[in-house]
């Protein structure tokens, strides 16, 4: 795809966010959103330096086990559960890789219990599982981590609401307005289509983009299965002559 070099790209504005592929703020079937959703229209803001810039992170800030959830909290053995690799690329809407960006992830253990002082679900804490990790994408936008497949769990929305197995993702990009938090689901999980949080997304095609397929080619035989999850962040406008931040 023609366009300026990637170093120049970090100077340009972002393409308008397509709000139709995201959940709206007010989604009454996800009850907690009712009192926490703004009711005024968002104020559209043409980008300035405050929007096109964002924080950067270095390898020196991460530990060697930060992307290995099987080992990064292990005390006296491995955590219980299905061993999996999750891998993919962080790209932008122009199809370009997003290199050297921070990807963070967190999840419940194999029984559906979070290591969190506010989680009181009766499934047990796994003494060898923390449930969080982080990594930086490489120069091609590629990331991977190893973990245990999380379990589904009940939550108080309707009296019998269950979350499908999922992993939470937090991604940065190169500008603060690319900031994104989302959740990855697993191919074949029957809880996905009845989940009130999944259903906050009105576009069924958009929901599909949150479901990671089994990726047998990336598995480790006799050891670990793999799932592939690509993440797409907002892209920058590629025509620099049209989008100088000053003087046009």
């Amino acid at each position: 795809m023609p366009g300026p070099a990637i170093s120049d790209m970090s100077l340009s504005e972002f393409i308008q966010r397509d709000r139709n592929i995201h959940p709206p703020a007010y989604t009454p079937t996800y009850k907690t959103s009712v009192a926490r959703s703004p009711r005024h229209a968002l104020l559209s803001l043409q980008n300035s330096l405050s929007e096109i810039t964002g924080p950067r992170f270095g390898h020196n800030e991460l530990g060697p086990l930060d992307n290995d959830l099987i080992r990064n909290y292990a005390k006296d053995g491995d955590p219980i559960g299905e061993r999996i690799i999750v891998h993919g690329r962080v790209l932008d809407e122009n199809g370009r890789p997003v290199p050297h960006t921070l990807v963070e992830f967190w999840q419940a253990n194999a029984g559906g219990r979070y290591r969190h002082k506010k989680d009181a679900y009766l499934a047990p804490i796994d003494p060898n599982f923390g449930g969080c990790g982080r990594t930086l994408t490489d120069e091609n936008g590629y990331y991977y981590f190893r973990t245990i497949k999380p379990g589904p769990y009940p939550w108080r929305n309707y009296v019998n609401s269950w979350r499908p197995a999922h992993i939470h993702f937090s991604v940065f990009g190169s500008g603060f307005v690319q900031r994104l938090i989302t959740q990855m689901y697993f191919e074949g999980d029957p809880l996905i289509k009845i989940c009130p949080i999944v259903k906050t997304i009105p576009d069924p095609d958009a929901v599909e983009r949150l479901i990671a397929p089994l990726d047998l080619n990336a598995s480790v035989p006799l050891d670990t299965l793999a799932y592939k999850f690509d993440i797409v962040l907002r892209g920058r406008r590629s025509t620099l002559f049209e989008n100088k931040l000053e003087g046009n």
């Binding site: 397509d18 592929i21 959103s33 790209l91 969190h116 958009a206 797409v232």
Partner: peptide, 13 residues
């Protein structure tokens, strides 16, 4: 063009 990945709530945890 690619589609941006949809957002999901950060949740209680």
């Amino acid at each position: 063009y690619f589609y941006e990945t949809p957002s999901q709530t950060a949740g209680p945890y």
